[in-house]
Design a protein around this nucleic acid. Structure first.
Lengths: 99, 99
DNA sequence: GGGAAATATAACAGTTATGTTATCGTGCGT
DNA sequence: ACGCACGATAACATAACTGTTATATTTCCC
């Protein structure tokens, strides 16, 4: 399992523009990363999560890439599938297991 | 200051359809109510909050009515202005003061 | 009652996010 | 080499959400 920092580093290497996006919109990008991280923690592929949420793999990929922010309803669907809890405040954006 | 239950009751009286919406999409509607509640707790009018967030009053009213769910970026802006913290999970949707 | 403040709603144009199919690239195992 | 799984991306249509002005209605207070 990867640490958060490792995860970000890997994404930056894959796509340098990622770091810039990160600086500009910390929490918006974080939600993408946080969701991806939790999915991996749950040992699910994007396709598996897609099926669980009634979506398709490209949509999951798109959300995890940060291309678009998840709509509220979409967020709920994913949190349900992943049994996750989102804590969002002016200073943090975290998605944790709530089992 | 109103309790959560009082707040919901008032809204149901004003607009019977509200109860139906509430039953159908519990968490989606809750976010609208939760944000409105926190705003009032902070003693702000919709216009004041609008100014703080760079929006206009009708948009705040619209969000609080549950007509549309707030986009993620919008949610962040409002939480910042209200110094609020959102906790969202499969079983709860709560916005509290984080001061 | 009257005026001001607060809230609600409509309408319109623009932007963002979804949903989808198709396709491509990569990695891994046989 | 081939097949499969996984993830990334494009393109398209459409729904959802924003942003706004204008206006109506409600609430509050003197």
């Amino acid at each position: 399992m990867k640490t958060h920092r490792q995860y970000i580093t890997e994404r930056i290497e894959k796509k340098p523009a990622f770091a810039q996006d990160l600086a500009e919109a910390e929490r918006e990008v974080t939600i993408a990363v946080e969701l991806a991280k939790l999915r991996e923690q749950r040992g699910l592929s994007q396709s598996q999560l897609a099926r669980m949420t009634g979506m398709k793999q490209p949509q999951i990929a798109r959300l995890e890439s940060g291309a678009y922010m998840p709509a509220f309803g979409t967020l709920i669907r994913i949190l349900e599938a992943l049994k996750g809890k989102l804590e969002l405040s002016p200073t943090e954006c975290r998605v944790t297991c709530c089992r």
